[in-house]
Structure formats: structure tokens, C-alpha cells
Computed example of a mutant assay.
Amino acid sequence: MTVRVLVVDDSAFFRRRVTEILEQNRRIEVIGSANDGREAVDKAKSLRPDVITMDIEMPVMNGIDAVKEIMRSAPCPILMFSSLTHDGATATLNALEAGAADFLPKKFEDIARNRDDAVRTLQDRVLAIATDPAARSARAATPPPAPVSRPSSRTARPQVDKPGTSALDRIRQRSDERQQRQQTSEGTTAATTNLTINRNYQVLAIGTSTGGPVALQKILTQLPQNFPYPIIMVQHMPAAFTKAFSQRLDGLCKVKVKEAEEGDVLKPGVAYLAPGGKQMLVDGSASNTRLRIREDDSGRITYKPSVDVTFASLSKLFGGKVLSVILTGMGADGREGARMLQQHGATIWAQDEASCVVYGMPQAVASAGISSRSISLTDMAKAILKEVGYQ
């Protein structure tokens, strides 16, 4: 079934370029375009696209405000285009918090080493975040949804996906949950009052890609300051973004969050984010572990940072004393690293399909029989806390 796309950008040249690239794929149809955020909101309501590509800097209404309004009035997966600068990173993270599903660099030469790869990447991202056929049919047949009501309390428990929930309903639900960031569920608050450290573990490792920034924020903001293990995080993200993302998380979380640096000593209650464009490994001993950050100019490994690379190094140093989680993301990065961890006796969990933006990476470990549990994003922090010893 064809994925229907609305292209939004204030540059007519860029709109044409994106349209031409997308329509090279027979599974994609561009059904309209808009040159500012306000027009994007109006056309999202009238055309009901399956995916919107969105610029950030635009006249009349910018991309971030347009995302917020679309997610309130006509929920739809949105792919942002961003500049690879610190300001661009901050704006993109704001858009993801507002409800955008994913992002790509606006300069196509920054997406991949050659044009053909860049074209395929854009097409693949649009197809990956598109909602399923049932949701598309429902969106075409029903009037625009009413604005989502928001709980007045910051500690209200987020909604949980119910069996049979459509993809469109999940988009609406995730939009509402993003508006409630920094909240702590009642169950998690109670769980942090009593800790008996689970000595079966020495580190928590998390790997993710598309949809990961929001997923990581949702989990980390629920962890207490005295979390008993160091946290290793690999998020597929450009080099210009990981610093801004780690700083944002550090300002929101009780645990300390930092972009990993060469020689960092792992400490409990500190979350280390792999720097974009490089590989992160662990070295030393289980009782005195340091991070090694390595340049990677080879074409052998697609992702930089790579979950597989980091997880493999964890398996060699910590063996089975790793609690590892694979969250939402395209592709299968993390499967082989998780397999190595599993062979040493480590615990592997995967995010469930219903709560994923893209059920690629979690599906890879689940289908291979590597993960022992599939857990909703809503319940992931609570499950982690219970596993490590909070009662």
C-alpha cells in the first residue's frame, strides 16, 4: 500500500528535491506540499498524510510549533530535517519532544557517503515511520480528532497501550505522554524507597535508534539518583547531537548524564552516552572500568556509534553481569552484541512492538530468541528498578 507524504519546507527548491527523491520509490506518493508551518497544519488536517517531512526554520509558524499543533489536531508521523549544528541539535530535540518521530540532516551529503545511499536512507526512513494500512484507512474515514486532554497533575500515570490499539491511537497516546515528560509514575516513586542491590548485575546497557531520544528520556527521568550501576547508552545520532542530548538529559534526570569521553571511569548512578560518529568500548576490569572512545573511518560498520560494538566489549569485560535493553529503532544493530552478552549469561530485554516508533532493533533480538522479555516503554523503568533491587 502506498505511503502518502506531505513535504513541508519554505524552500521551493528543497521541496522539489525531496519530492523527486521520494517518488523514485513506487511505495511512496507525495500528495502535497506546504511552505510554512501554518500551511502544514492546515494540510495535515485536510489531506491526512501518512508521513510529513518538516523543516524547522520557516516563516509564519516554525517547524517545532507546527509539530505540536499537528500532534494535537491531526496526529501523524513526522520526519524532521535539521542542520548538524548545536543549535540545530537543540531545535531537533525540541521537535522530537513535541512529537516528531525521527530526523535527518538537511544536507544530503551529511546523510551518506554517496547520493544513492542518501536517497535510499530518506526513502527508508519515510517508509519505516509510516503508520500501518489500518490506521491510514481509519484516518481517511474519520473526522479530525479532538484535542487530547491532559492530566492536570504532573504525577499522573501515563496511559498504557491496550490490546487492539491502532497505530494512530498509539501516535496520539505517545503525543500526550510527551507533553508529560519529567513525570514520575506512582509505582516508580514507591519503588525507589527501598533498595537491595541485585549483585547479579554490574552495569545497565541500553541500545536504540529511531524514537530513542524520547524513549531514553522517559526511562532515565524515572531512575533515582542512587541508581546502583553505571548506565551505558548507545543512540544512533550525529556527532553534533550527542553533546546537546546528554546535556538535556542531565538537566531533566536525577542520575547524572554525560557524553562519554576517553578515559571516563564508570561510576554508579552515572549514564554515559556514546558520542556520535565514534565507537565506545569498555576496558580495564569489572571493578575499575574505563571507557575508550575510538574514531571509526572504516566502511565495515554501518553505525557510529554501534550497539553491537559496545555490547561486544561489555560481554568480554562483564560477562553475564549486564542488564541490557534494546529499544525502538530501525535495522538490527544490537542483535549480535546482545547475542554475545546472552552467551555469557547476561539478561536481554526488548521494547515491545506496540510502544516502538519503529519495531526493528527490538524485533531483531526478539525474533532471534535472544531477549527474554518484551516490555512496554511505559513499564520499562519500573521493570528495570524492580530487577536491580528496588522494592
Rank of each mutant, 00 (worst) to 15 (best):
M361K: 09
D110K: 13
F227C: 00
K68T: 12
V7R: 04
G37D: 06
A244Y: 04
R181I: 01
I375H: 02
Q363P: 00
A354C: 11
S83E: 11
F103E: 05
A12W: 04
S298Q: 09
I31E: 12
S149N: 12
V119G: 03
V18A: 10
G164M: 10
F81W: 09
E109M: 03
S374D: 02
A101R: 00
P163W: 13
E387D: 07
D333P: 04
A138E: 15
V30H: 08
T121Q: 14
A274S: 14
E23K: 15
D10I: 02
E262V: 06
C356K: 11
G345M: 09
N288F: 15
T310M: 14
T378A: 07
A101W: 02
A118R: 13
S324F: 07
S83M: 12
R120A: 15
V234M: 04
A167C: 07
V160L: 13
D283K: 15
S367C: 08
N94C: 10
T19L: 14
T378R: 09
P105M: 03
R292N: 09
V3L: 02
E261Y: 11
V265L: 06
G369D: 02
I78R: 01
A240G: 09
T19P: 11
R125P: 07
R174A: 00
A346Y: 12
G211D: 06
P75D: 04
G345V: 10
M1R: 12
I370V: 06
S209G: 12
R150W: 12
G269P: 05
R120C: 07
D87G: 13
A156R: 01
Q217D: 12
A98G: 15
Q217G: 14
F227E: 00
A381S: 08
L104Q: 07
P105R: 07
N62K: 15
L47P: 01
I52L: 11
S313L: 03
E57M: 14
S46I: 05
Q202W: 03
G99M: 02
D117Q: 15
T90A: 15
L47E: 04
T131V: 15
V126H: 10
A40D: 11
T210W: 08
G331W: 05
I348V: 14
T289P: 00
K254L: 10
S46E: 10
G37V: 01
E387T: 14
G63A: 13
A44Q: 10
Y201M: 03
E261W: 10
S82E: 11
R154I: 08
